[in-house]
Structures are given as C-alpha cells and as structure tokens.
C-alpha cells in the first residue's frame, strides 16, 4: 500500500502545472526508499522531465511494495484543482491499484474531499541519463530566467545562450529584429537567492528552442533559483531544487549550422 501525505497540496499542484504542458501521460514510480520518482519525455523527444520526491518531501510516507502509477496529468490536474493550496494532500493506492485515491483535508479538519482517479497502463520509453560533466553551471533567480525566456520568445523561435567567465548573454534574432540580455555574476549579500553564480570550465555557445524553454520556466513557481548546466553540443540540464528532491529538465540543443 502507498500512503504519501504532503503537508500542503500546493507542492503537488505546482508540480503538475509545471509539467503537464510538456508531457501528458506519466508513470509515477513509488518505493519506500526513493519516494516518488518520474521520468517522462515529450512527444517530440526534445525535452525530458525527471522528478524526485524523497520520502522526506512528505509529512508521512509509506510504500510497502514498489508501485507504478500511470497517470494522465490533465486528469490529475483537474482533481488537484479541487483542493486548496493549504490543504493536507494524501495520495493512497493499493498494492495492485486500478485507482489512485486523492484526499484533501483542510487544516482545520472540518472538511475532507476524496477523489478516485483511474490509473492507466502507460508504455513509456525510459532513457539512461548518467551524471554528465558540464562546461558551465549557472545559478540565478528562477523568475529572472523565466522573464528572459518569455520576453525573448516574442522575437524568435530560438534562444542562443553564450556563457563566458563572468557573464551570460541571451540572444534572439527574428523577423522583427534582434535582442540580447546580459546578466553578470554577482553576490547579493542581503538575499543569497538573488545572487547570480557562474562556474565555468569552458565557454559555451548553445542554442535552444524558445518553446521548450518557455515550458521549463513554468517550474519557476517551485523554486526561487534555477541551476542551468550547459555544454556545447549536448543536452542542457535545468534543475529546480525542491525540499528533499528536485525537478530536472534535460533539453536537446539545436544544431550548429
């Protein structure tokens, strides 16, 4: 039996909103030691999502037997919208489940709502992602990155990212003109989360589809900072750290012409 209780429904609500536009059907893998993990690739095979929610992400977590819960994220999103952000959220499944039970309790305990969601058999392709060495790592406020990704998309379908020792340059060029945003490394002593950190082994010049970057920045509601690991000509990693877990996106670059 699986029983995973979140202190608030808000984490799961934000997670599903962050990924449901990229992938529709997902297998949630549940185990006592690893908690809940998920890997899903978008239909175009350009963007991969990897989610880890350690047992420590939950107020209570019990999983007697490894389970795979095949879920339609559109349906899960509909159910999660029934609960309030501050509600306790508990996910419950039997050992060979046909359904996932989603229970919201309002913190004052005067209201309990229960929903049963049908599970699906999902035949998903799982890719082996090994730890990669990257040419550079950038950590910046996730809202700053979201703004750049959203703004630059209005200029072009592609966003070029150039990283040098102490700055990151975002460039877009399209039918109406061109634009660039340069951000420099700095340390904010008052609020460390506002700092911009650049670790560089080698300068990087890489281009991504703006559409995918706009999907990725939907996760900026989950973490105040995002870490972007880039290497020339190989997929990039965008990581949003969660309390006791992470949401990672791997994005394939565009070809050099």
């Amino acid at each position: 039996m699986l029983e995973g209780k979140f202190e608030s429904a808000s984490l799961m609500k934000r997670l599903v909103e962050a990924i449901k536009d990229s992938v529709k059907l997902c297998n949630f893998n549940c185990s006592q030691t690893k908690g809940i993990t998920l890997q899903a690739i978008d239909d175009s095979r350009v963007l991969l999502i990897s989610l880890k929610l350690d047992p420590g992400c939950f107020e209570g977590f019990r999983c007697d037997k490894n389970l795979v819960l095949g879920l339609d994220l559109e349906s899960l999103s509909k159910v999660l919208k029934q609960g309030n952000n501050e509600d306790y959220l508990t996910l419950i499944a039997e050992d060979a489940p046909d359904n996932l039970l989603v229970v919201f309790e309002d913190p004052k305990k005067d209201r309990i709502s229960e929903f049963s969601l049908k599970l699906m058999d999902i035949d998903s392709d799982v890719l082996s992602i090994e730890d990669m060495d990257h040419d550079c790592s950038i950590t910046l406020p996730s809202s700053d990155f979201a703004k750049v990704a959203r703004d630059m998309r209005t200029l072009s379908e592609s966003l070029q990212i150039l990283v040098t020792k102490d700055s990151v340059k975002f460039m877009a060029s399209g039918p109406i003109g061109t634009g660039s945003v340069i951000i420099k490394a700095h340390t904010d002593l008052k609020d460390g989360k506002e700092s911009i950190k650049i670790d560089l082994n080698k300068s990087v010049n890489v281009t991504f589809g703006a559409k995918y970057l706009n999907d990725i920045v939907k996760a900026s509601t989950l973490a105040e900072t995002v870490t972007i690991k880039l290497t020339n000509k190989i997929p990039a990693l965008f990581e949003f750290k969660l309390q006791g877990g992470y949401l990672r996106y791997y994005l394939a670059p565009k070809f050099d012409e």
Partner: peptide, 13 residues
C-alpha cells in the same frame, strides 16, 4: 536551425 533529439544522446533503457 534544426532541432536535435535527446535520443541521439541518451540510450533507451
């Protein structure tokens, strides 16, 4: 600019 696929970099399990 053509888009690369993740499957050119990562093996299927």
């Amino acid at each position: 600019m053509p888009q690369q696929l993740l499957t050119s970099f990562f093996r299927s399990q």
